[in-house]
Amino acid sequence: MARISKALYLTILMLLLYVPIFILVVNSFNASKYGIKWTGFSTKWYEKLVQNDALIQAALNSLTVSIIAATMATVIGTLAAVALYRYDFKGKKFLSGMVFVSMLTPDIVMAIALLIVFITLGISLGFISLLIAHITFCLPFVIIAVYARLNDFDKRMILAARDLGASEWRIFRLVILPLILPAVVSGWLLSFTLSLDDVIVSAFVTGPGYEILPLKVYSMVKVGVSPEVNAISTILLVVSLLIVIASQLIVRKDKTL
């Protein structure tokens, strides 16, 4: 009985998670414009998509920003988490508290705040402002993911490494980093996802020269979301899947070492 209910529960969970995505993928091959009824298999939305330069450019821009923002947030965030874990300095409590505050700040508040900062500093809105904003809101997630992992970590290993004469850099590279790698990878993935589908902050901090996909799609409510969006979402889904698989491989490879 328990086994059946467990299986049932898992099935329902999986269906809830994946049926919508499955429908989207199926609809990207649906000849019908509104995707309400199945009117036949067609790749015409993909063909139309290829000609829709603006949409493709927006998708590429989105991927560029997400990858760079996630990578930079991961580097900065990992270092910050290690610093918070290993060293004692003035204002440490305050700093780690502020990490949570910035994570819990509503997007809209952060968006307006960032926009005001950019205007005050005279940074023109576009790729750079968007990137800075994305790194900012991704950062706390990386710090928290990595910090949680560090907390389970036996401090004596660092002492042992130091006993054996390792420099700070070697300790970080050969002891700490391998142990926290899964958290670093998941921090990167989390940042990538957050950055890729952010609408609210991006709407405020990007400029006219740099359009990203979520904004374009969200703005389609006026004329109706076109099925090309299903097509490009399917492609992005495949790209994301590849990234997840790649990251799993990185983690696994590391374990065998």
């Binding site: 307006i112 990007t206 006219p208 703005s219 409510v221």
Partner: peptide, 14 residues
């Protein structure tokens, strides 16, 4: 250069 918004409110704020 074509930039987009998703509501009059967002456009106005910006």
């Amino acid at each position: 250069e074509y930039a987009t918004y998703e509501s009059n409110e967002a456009m106005f704020a910006k």
